[in-house]
Design a binder for these strands. Sequence first.
DNA 1: GTGAAAGCGCTAACAG
DNA 2: CTGTTAGCGCTTTCAC
Lengths: 329, 329
Amino acid sequence: MATIYEVAKMAGVSPATVSRVFNGIGVSEAKTQAVRDAARQLRFSPNRTARSLRRQESEVIALVIPDIENPYFTELARGVEDVAQKAGYSVVLCNSDAQVEKEARYLQIAIAEHMAGVILAAAADHTNLDDILATGRPVVAVDRGTGYDIDGVVMANRSAGRAATENLVDAGYRRIAFIAGPELIETAQERAQGWRAVMASRVPDAPVDELLRYSSFQVDGGRGAMEELLALAEPPDAVVAGNNLIGVGAIQVLTEHGLTPPRLGVAVIGSLPFTTLSPSAVTIVRLPARHMGVTAATLLLERIGGDGQPSRTVVLRNEVQPATAVRSA
Amino acid sequence: MATIYEVAKMAGVSPATVSRVFNGIGVSEAKTQAVRDAARQLRFSPNRTARSLRRQESEVIALVIPDIENPYFTELARGVEDVAQKAGYSVVLCNSDAQVEKEARYLQIAIAEHMAGVILAAAADHTNLDDILATGRPVVAVDRGTGYDIDGVVMANRSAGRAATENLVDAGYRRIAFIAGPELIETAQERAQGWRAVMASRVPDAPVDELLRYSSFQVDGGRGAMEELLALAEPPDAVVAGNNLIGVGAIQVLTEHGLTPPRLGVAVIGSLPFTTLSPSAVTIVRLPARHMGVTAATLLLERIGGDGQPSRTVVLRNEVQPATAVRSA
DNA sequence: GTGAAAGCGCTAACAG
DNA sequence: CTGTTAGCGCTTTCAC
């Protein structure tokens, strides 16, 4: 690749002028044109590595998520990428696989590569951000908090849990189970709290402890928990899935048992983008994942731009899409 | 962050020695230890930007895919990441959105960032790789060819199309439609060819031109094409979906029309990871996407390591998982 | 085995 | 507005 020096020589200017042209700093019309022409001829494109070294900052942001195969997070990634790309930033997608160690490694890389900032959906509740924060690089938390005083974008989880449950109660279900994600993940807890609150007020005699299951935020987690619930002496007549993949797993098991919704009521927190089920059979509490990504990226870019105001947390409201099919039982 | 100079001073050696320790080049036991101790105390981690500038190569590989929201590609990404990560490389996931211009921009970034190599699932058949190849950086094609003489990993597409179709013929279906992806995408064509071959030999009187539909590799594409097919004077009695998302869309439409498989036979090329449908109702021709990612990353790392042998193309066989449910009609 | 020194390509003072 | 110059932090000859 051509360097700034070759362009300078060809255009009859100094390297600094070439740099200025490419950074939008005042240069006379004539020289600007000469530089652009030379650059085009030499197919010059600035060496970002050199620029990053000099500036101590690269035009790359890291997006660290716990599960790249979960459509919720890829939708989030889309939102982040769209915004970043428009601002001239690339996104490094890092899959922490819900492991704190993998996550820590990516955070180290973000430091070593002088990345401009990080958007993080934390793998667990004890992620250590001391190092990255010490570098002054901005970090924005998404989906889950981090315990640090940084910007964040989260879903209205309690409210989502409430909405899903209320919907089921309104439809006439009573023994409503809840399959939560991992016990130590904040979002799982909050959604379960929403469910618990509605149960306490609307179905006070329901055995909530028996009806609450913790699992993983994976299809298999949903499957396992659903099997357990069905094996109960008195199985539930409805279930709230704590996230999209749990919903898929639970519905799979129900289908296998001949209990397709709405025979057994199902509400899912999160979208089922690739479901082949009739959408009217299941209540969906849509979580605006893409919007979360857009918001997080916007906040991050503001911080990268030097915004120093106190940290903000944006809570995104969700949208309920009720099941319209009625129980045939 | 601490630099190599500070570590050197603390350890009482030269910066060069510190560098050598971190690059596994012969340094005496004693000094190695001193350097490691100092590095630990200073929480030193090598500045990758500086290293990349000096070496003219970074430990980053780009993975360019047309749709980050398609589970097929995220599965692929997982495979790539697992291998890359183990070899100390980070992966930048680039979503070209099936647009050649976006793809070109990412390829330019790969050059400007001195990335070590690129794994590319081309957005279209006229991707231009001249620039990136001119830099000497290795590029491995996945899923689709590129028209360049480079390493590649592809699925056995024709065979997948054949297998899917044969399975449906064996199950007694006759008017078997095929919903392909975009007409100018190689994989779409090849899979359709497999279908066409089986139809020609087993159902020679079927009106194949009427039964073949091109669409997009998206849920909506599958929906639209399926609607069209059902609106035919003589609708098909079965359908092969050219990829996973088309399959989802087609099945959604069928469900809405009360034609849940196997009432109308369905075979899908690709997996339905988040389906809530009983797996026995649909024939799945599994495409080993993760394996494709692993293979591609392995090939790429070999090239990065300096392997100069003639270019290779690996064809991955697929695996058929037949529907076991029988038509009730 | 080890150190000194040059330089990767760019940007940011600093002069002019 | 423009050129000169000094590094950013690392690797890599080249001597010793």
